[in-house]
Each structure stands twice: as C-alpha cells, then as structure tokens.
Design a protein around this nucleic acid. Structure first.
Lengths: 196, 196
DNA sequence: TGGTGTGAACTTTTTCACAGCG
DNA sequence: CGCTGTGAAAAAGTTCACACCA
C-alpha cells in the first residue's frame, strides 16, 4: 500500500511526506506508519519527514522487489490468458517467462508471445528460463497438481489464483489471490450499513 | 475462505466436517474456526461437526451474499474488459449490469453484451439498472472521479481495482483490490527464506 | 521548531482448556 | 463419547506520549 501511495505522490510532484499526511491518505494512524517503516530501518529525517523517492527505494529493497522476478504460469484458461496479456506485470518487475498447461489442444499454441508447454515439462524448463515464482491459474480441481509440478521444480513461491487450498512442503510460501473475497466483504459491509 | 473450502468439500462429496479437519485445510487453529463461525450463530452440532451444505448456506446468509448483487463497472480499459468477460461473476452472484467510461471513443461500444455509457450518466441509470455496488477499473489518476460519480449516485459499496487510494464519505465502504500486493508478499517471503 | 523513532499502555486477536450438549 | 461453544489466558498488534535530533 505504501509503495502504491508513494508512487502516486511522486507522480504528483511531491518530494517529501510526513507520517501525518501519509496516514491521512492511507487511512491509518501516523504511529502505525512510523512503526511499520522503522521496522526495516531509519528511513525518515527528524523534523522533515520522508523523502518520497528514497522511501520507495528503501521499501522495495526491504521487500526484495527492487529487481526482476521471473514467473511461470500454469493453466492457460480465461484467467491465465488475461494475466499473460496484462502488461502491468513487466512494469512491476514480474516477468512471466513460461506458460504451461496439460491440455494437448493448448500445447503449442502461442499466447502473448509465449508458446504453451506441457505442465509435465515444467521441471526441465525451470533452470533454463530462470523461473523463481509460480502462478497457478487452473480450475480448482487441478490446482494441487499444478502446485506439485512447481514444488518439484524447486520453486519456493507460489501465487494461487485457483479457488482451492493447496498443500506445500515447509519452505514454500503460497499466497492466495481471489478477488471475490473483496466482493463478499463489500456486500457484507453494505448489508450491515443498511441495517441501522 | 471458508465458503471456498466448503464448496470444494461439497464437490468431493463430503457432508460433514469437523473444525479440526477444516482447520487443517485452511491452515489455521481449530479454535479459530469455531470462534469465527460461532460469531454469527450456532452452526455446528456437538459431537458431530458441521454439515457442509448447511454451513455454506449459513455463512452466505450471514455475509449477505445469498442473493444477487448488481454492479456498475467504471473504466472500460484492459482490466475492465477482462472483468466484463469473466463469467465467474454471475456464478458468484455479482452481476455487472452497467459499463461506464468517460472516453468518447469508447462510449457506445458494446463489450460483453453491455453498451458503454458516459460516466456522467451513472446517476441517472443507477435506479433503472438496480445498481448497488461500484467497480472502479480506471487508471489511478481517474479513480477519484469515478468514485465521486458512484458516491453521487448513492452507491454504498465500492471495489477499487485502480492502484490509488480514494476518499469517500462516511457510510460508504471501499475494498482495494490489487493482486500485486500478493506478488510483493511472495517475493518478500522467498527473499527471507533464501537468507537462512 | 517540527516530525521521527520508540518504550510503555492499551486494545484486539488468537489460543487454550474445558463445560455442555447431541 | 466426541466435538462444539466459550470464558480465561496468552500473544500480537495498535496507539500514545515523549525523548531525540536535523
């Protein structure tokens, strides 16, 4: 969230920002911001605030997103295609360098400049392509299998867009992405709000 | 998350589930599950567990997602089009019934069976279409304007896919959707993991 | 002077442990 | 008997208040 807000501030020509102002736009308490940022280092200047450009750099460095991460996408369905065509990925440093699917009708097809390869061949292609992260966009019932291919290939970070939980060995991190959670949350809040 | 897991259990033919087992798949503590569910009512049966179908129904009712929610989408760019074509929305009870944009070249175009209408006309179309939720898919610099149109139309729930914070009056809820947050999180965890 | 960094106080969330009930 | 629902205890997260420093 901070990266997002700071990049927008930068676009607006702001060079310095205080925790007070940052707090206002992020809708949190100023102390929260100071604690969060101080966790990774002393990024601010007393009596002045935070230099926007420096802070962006510092946060990205702290998170490890100050470089390119190469990703493999497994599951070339509707969602998979949408992600493959989403140019924002490159901008944010996440390069999708391989597309995999187990459907023989899709293998060989070229999507967004990438040839779809059989999922079983993920392991042999991982080192070549320099893949570090996996993106699962299969239907829910095939998510675990996709996950297994990724784990087997030695990949340590997985983004699961499939609406199913997956099991991974220790040392592998999974992030679940499902924007319907947000739809449920809004629906719930609106329902609550209209009651009183 | 519970709805997601329970629907998958149902597909697999499971009729009853204990907090213990549910906890295992959700990767949380069993007490957590019991507390969460008990918050909305007594859904379980002592000595037995939770009936899967009943629990799905109960949770959906508690969240207010046991009905159709009609949505307006503002910003027919790449992401907007992808969402308009995403059939999963109907399945989950979120019907996009109006598409709006301020670009004169897009107005009148038909996307996924919906005619793109000028954003300024949002208010006059809201009642007709029965719109209750707004989905913002504009570029970040136009998110606030889109938001203002929605608020002005009396909409109380907004999903903001634009990478920018927006201001709303009290009584209006906003959920921010940005899956790059998840990419950052995975990158961070993988970076951490490779250090020790 | 003004805004950060931070220990201490406070609040919220999570887990434990077991009573209660089908 | 077995698993839920729930107070009490423990842990985690947030806010306050002010020392400290450009």
């Amino acid at each position: 969230m901070y990266i997002q807000v700071l990049e927008n501030l930068q676009r607006d020509g702001k060079n310095v920002i205080s925790s007070e102002l940052l707090a206002r736009t992020c809708d949190v308490n100023p102390s929260q911001i100071r604690k969060d940022l101080a966790y990774f280092g002393e990024f601010g200047v007393r009596g002045v605030g935070y230099y926007v450009q420096d802070l962006i750099t510092s946060i990205k460095q702290a998170l490890g997103v100050d470089r390119v991460w190469k990703c493999a996408l497994v599951g070339v369905g509707n969602l998979g295609r949408a992600l493959l065509n989403h140019r924002e990925f490159r901008l944010r440093g996440f390069h999708i360098v391989g597309a995999f699917d187990c459907d023989p009708f899709k293998i060989g097809e070229v999507v967004s400049g990438l040839e779809v390869v059989c999922s079983r061949r993920l392991k042999e292609r991982t080192a070549d392509l320099g893949i570090e992260l996996g993106v699962i966009t299969t239907p829910p019932e095939r998510a675990q299998r996709a996950c297994n291919y990724l784990v087997d290939a030695g990949i340590k970070g997985i983004l699961n867009f499939a609406p199913a939980r997956i099991e991974v060995p220790e040392g592998v991190t999974v992030e679940y992405v499902d924007f319907f959670h947000h739809f449920y949350a809004v629906a719930f809040n609106v329902t609550l709000g209209s009651q009183d």
